[in-house]
Measured scan of single mutants.
Amino acid sequence: KLETFPLDVLVNTAAEDLPRGVDPSRKENHLSDEDFKAVFGMTRSAFANLPLWKQQNLKKEKGLF
């Protein structure tokens, strides 16, 4: 399991300012399950079932792209 970080560490943070080991294209993977659901309004599995373009739009909207 990946290390999780608080939302404010990941949202609207440039790649070079992210904690070590965080993939800038997969910031959402480093949210706790609770934060993930609070941000996206759905579970990880529901998010994973969305088309890629919709996932990317949601990530942009939430500052996690």
Rank of each mutant, 00 (worst) to 15 (best):
F40R: 00
P24S: 07
E28V: 02
T13S: 13
L64Q: 02
P19R: 01
A46C: 10
D33M: 06
F65G: 15
K37L: 14
T43Y: 06
N57T: 14
K27C: 05
L52C: 14
Q56L: 12
P19M: 01
T43F: 07
A38R: 13
N49D: 15
G63C: 06
L31P: 01
E28R: 00
K54S: 10
A15I: 14
R26P: 01
G41Q: 15
V39Y: 04
D33A: 08
E34S: 12
V11Y: 07
N57G: 12
S32N: 10
D35R: 01
T4V: 13
P19K: 01
L58H: 05
P19F: 02
F65Y: 14
N12K: 06
E3R: 05
R44A: 06
S25D: 14
L2G: 11
L18W: 05
R44I: 05
T4F: 15
V9G: 03
F47M: 01
K62H: 13
Q56W: 09
D33C: 07
P6M: 04
N49F: 10
L64V: 03
D8R: 08
A14F: 06
G63M: 05
D8P: 05
D23M: 02
N12I: 06
F36S: 00
N49E: 14
L10H: 06
F40L: 08
D23Y: 03
N29F: 09
V9D: 05
L31Y: 01
P24E: 06
Q55M: 05
L50C: 04
N12W: 11
D33Q: 07
K1M: 13
D8C: 11
S32K: 07
L18M: 06
D23N: 08
N29S: 09
A15H: 10
T13D: 06
F47Q: 00
K62N: 15
D23L: 03
N29E: 14
D35M: 04
A14I: 11
A38S: 13
Q56E: 12
E16N: 09
A15P: 14
D8V: 09
L58V: 05
L2P: 15
H30G: 03
L7M: 08
N12Q: 08
A38D: 13
K1Q: 13
E34F: 10
V22P: 04
D35T: 05
N12T: 07
F40K: 00
L50A: 02
A48V: 10
L50G: 00
D17I: 01
F5S: 02
F65M: 12
D17C: 14
V9E: 06
P19Y: 03
K1S: 11
W53H: 12
D35K: 01
K54Q: 13
F40N: 00
P19S: 01
F5Y: 15
F36M: 02
A14S: 12
L10D: 03
